[in-house]
Design a protein around this nucleic acid. Sequence first.
DNA 1: ATGAAAGCGCTAACAA
DNA 2: TTGTTAGCGCTTTCAT
Lengths: 334, 334
Amino acid sequence: MREIADQLGISRTTVSLILKGNAAQYRISPQTQKRVLDKAKELNFRPNFFAKALNKAKTGVIGVLFPNVFETFMSKVVKGIEDVLYANDYTMMLCTSRFNREQEIKNIGQLNYRSVDGMLMVFNAPFHGEKYSYKHIERLSQGPCPVVFIDRYLPGLPIPSVVQDDEAGAYNATRSLIDSGCTNIAYVSLHIDISSIHDRFAGYKRALAEAGREISRNHVVTLNKRERVAHDLESAVRSLLASEKRPDGFLVTTNGLSFRLIRILELQGRTLNRDYKIAKFGADPPDNPSGMYCIEQPHTEMGMRAARLLCDSIENRTSPGAQQIIVKTALHKP
Amino acid sequence: MREIADQLGISRTTVSLILKGNAAQYRISPQTQKRVLDKAKELNFRPNFFAKALNKAKTGVIGVLFPNVFETFMSKVVKGIEDVLYANDYTMMLCTSRFNREQEIKNIGQLNYRSVDGMLMVFNAPFHGEKYSYKHIERLSQGPCPVVFIDRYLPGLPIPSVVQDDEAGAYNATRSLIDSGCTNIAYVSLHIDISSIHDRFAGYKRALAEAGREISRNHVVTLNKRERVAHDLESAVRSLLASEKRPDGFLVTTNGLSFRLIRILELQGRTLNRDYKIAKFGADPPDNPSGMYCIEQPHTEMGMRAARLLCDSIENRTSPGAQQIIVKTALHKP
DNA sequence: ATGAAAGCGCTAACAA
DNA sequence: TTGTTAGCGCTTTCAT
């Protein structure tokens, strides 16, 4: 910038003004403007991000923090977020906590250090029975930087969130299994202590109750340790199959789990659609085996809504409080 | 920082020195150090990233640019990258180009604007027959910021890369199909003009040639348009099945494609393992149906190697030129 | 319509 | 051992 000014024999202020598009406001002569603009192009001028960020409070960066990015869920949400963020001239800084609380804390620290203008996050949640502290998450509500939660929320914390209607989704799916003739419907889930999972279980129970079915403890499979999921699922399936009321329907709360389940049942000689039906959260229709009910969550829309909410709260400086947006799921029948 | 200095009645320099850990070097009195450190904690001092970046050339941020993050491939690479980067005190800035050249250009611009210390990327490649320019990629070699390519490279461009041994992987897999009794082996791939895909095809052909099999054009399925993959694959499969030499083995170059293929074959009444075998690039063993050969690429290792290469070239200021690291694939038999 | 000058928060050479 | 000073590149207020 100095170079431009010097070479043109004018002051740096003028150059700055023009380059920022404030020329009109200051009624700078069109010739000068053109000279500056041309020179800028000639010298291939790129404004310095840091100098700018040092003066202004804004960085134009939104931090996005997810447990990982390789579940279809996350990646579709990211797509929605990107769409909105890029359209609003924000840049995304994406980090993953790898389901690890310490890493999550570190990442939050980094994002703060980098003075992001806002944060979008799917925070980590503990498995049932783990002792766990949400202090680092709770602190966010006092922080200087607006945050929007996705997929889950912390009851009582004044931070807005975008979630799906888990209870209704699970309810509808379970009902469909019942309507299609399943008599013993099992519930298969990671036993995570988080709003979304609790709500899904509630939907499952409501559907059974409404149909006059009893809810058998033996049909509820809740997996407790991430590392042992594969193994635990296998033994759970064995006892499900050995039980008197062998399930002919499964409500599965996550996509990955449903594939594992099919695989294991296959090894036990039971074939999807012939011997049992599955309804699962998460859908990727073109690649799914036939015979699955999918509770499709509008992932991309969730990302978009969350990003919009965040952008609004940054720009209007409105504090959305604990506002919650609930997006609808859709049931895909096989 | 000023506050600390003022409240303690000492100069800002001293504070800066101490806070940066250069105290010893300047033999600052331990008491002063302690006073400063305590005060810093008391005031909850956080250094300003931008002020720092403005002075020094380094930002501590590495830009990572991928076509997307939802293929298992990408996400595992990301994991490897994160491991190394975090260990070396770098932060990762992850962007996705969504298989879109314009977006890729924008992202590169953003990363440059943000003065990242280095970049890791899986760049976009065109489908066969598309007209495409790599100018924006080629320009990177003159840029100020070191770059390492992953999974693919541009021949002749002096930029280091980390790739897998695609030719050998495809060769071994095809051989295994042959050895296990397949007589007609089809090749199924996205028809992308990129080193890795070319090499896989070469491996397929070498295995067939070596076994004295002829390579029939009818057995080569190359899909040309991303949007039409599902549709095109279906019609291709139909004609494969209608042909005289109905394939009983498939070499598939990508993970996603292999699932689509199985699905389509299933709908045509052909069952994996009973009627045909598949060997595919990409492995996620626990979720795979049985009866697949998987060419497992050491994704995570690739990410790590690439990140290390980059860190080295940043810190040692050695220019690795066009150095290429080739990591070995492993064949998983069903 | 343009310029001078102060300052964003921190670093680093030099002086004391 | 500590302080002075001059920037890093840009924005912004106030003069002119």
